[in-house]
Simulated assay, not measured.
Amino acid sequence: MNSLDVTSHHSIGQVPIVPSGGPIQTDVALPAERAATLALLFQQHSTKSRAALFRWAGELFHENPAVFDGLFRTSVNGQVSGAIWAQPGPGNQATVWLPEFLRGVTDQESLAKGLVEILDIWLRGRLRGLSFLSAKCLNAVGLRAFLELGYWHLADMSRMAVRIDETSLVPEDCLEGECRGLGIRLTPYQSKDRTLLINLSEAISKESLDCPALSGIRDYGNVVDSQLHRQGCTPSHWRIVWIDYEPIGAVLVSTHNSLPHAELVFLGIVPAARGRGIGRQLIRHAKHLAATAKVQSLSLNCDNDNFPAISTYQRAGFQSVGRSAVFVKQYE
């Protein structure tokens, strides 16, 4: 099978109840099983969203056929009945879709444990040191399975998004004037700015309400490099924020070559520059950058406990569109 055949799964309305009993097998999803396995992982979404997710998965496969190497399934009597998926990214990071099961599957606790165990073995060969897993499609069974295997639940994240249209595009002279009024200027990121951005990211993390448990232990070089080397993404809409000749913040909007969406992967300012309205201006600038990239929406992840940031994003038009959880584990 040379492509992802999902035509028979786009219109799934009711996921069938699995037959009871029979032999249980947990292994990597074979090419012929991938569509059914993905259908399980996407089953909580609307029909329209499932179709979009299948298109997205197909685009990922087209860019990198190895993207399904971390797609595992549990089968009962030869029928795909449970699923889990991990997508390692650059650096010590991975995105994980937590276990999902067909309706009627019994003993989901032990089946989820089996799926997480085989995934953990697979990840051990790909991640090193302190590693971060962003878990999608949260459910209690999957969360417990990860905790039982020694993963540390670091934070719950709120996924937020805002629609981007012509009103998001602000005349350059207007933006520059607004920035001058706050005493700041923004410059495009260049490759020579890597070390500057690493040091700036570490400084911004101090006194931050976003995943404060990571302060002092996270490798910010790894963080920056993981964003720079994300497959299909470009840093052409990244900006460094300055007051006079001192870097005080960053706004990083990443776009993907084949997707009509952008992601605000980082926005922050150092503690000494907070409380002046700079953050609100940077959000406005981020929406403008997304508009220049001609995308339809801009999304971000924010720590659920960072109430000031969530409130600021909401006032800027962002709405909650989902949840995720961040797990941490030390791999040898």
Rank of each mutant, 00 (worst) to 15 (best):
S254Q: 12
I278N: 01
L38E: 00
G277V: 05
R218H: 01
D225N: 09
K113C: 08
S254K: 07
I12K: 14
V253M: 15
L228A: 06
L143G: 03
A273V: 07
Q43S: 15
S215A: 09
S46L: 01
F146S: 06
L264E: 14
I240Q: 04
F146W: 08
L130V: 10
K206T: 13
A36L: 01
P90G: 15
V141A: 01
K136M: 13
G70H: 06
L38P: 06
I204R: 03
E202D: 13
S297R: 04
A213V: 11
K48T: 15
A57P: 01
D27W: 10
G322Y: 05
A325L: 03
A316N: 05
P260E: 14
F327W: 14
T255Q: 07
I269F: 12
R239Q: 09
A36W: 01
E202L: 02
L53F: 08
W97N: 08
R218E: 14
I12S: 15
P188N: 05
A86N: 13
P90S: 15
K206Y: 11
S49I: 11
F42K: 03
D244H: 04
A293Q: 14
G249D: 09
G58L: 02
S11L: 08
P88V: 02
E263W: 14
N77L: 00
W56Q: 10
R128D: 09
P188K: 03
W85L: 13
S168A: 14
D107T: 05
E33S: 01
L182W: 07
T195F: 05
Q330A: 06
Y313I: 03
H237P: 00
E207W: 12
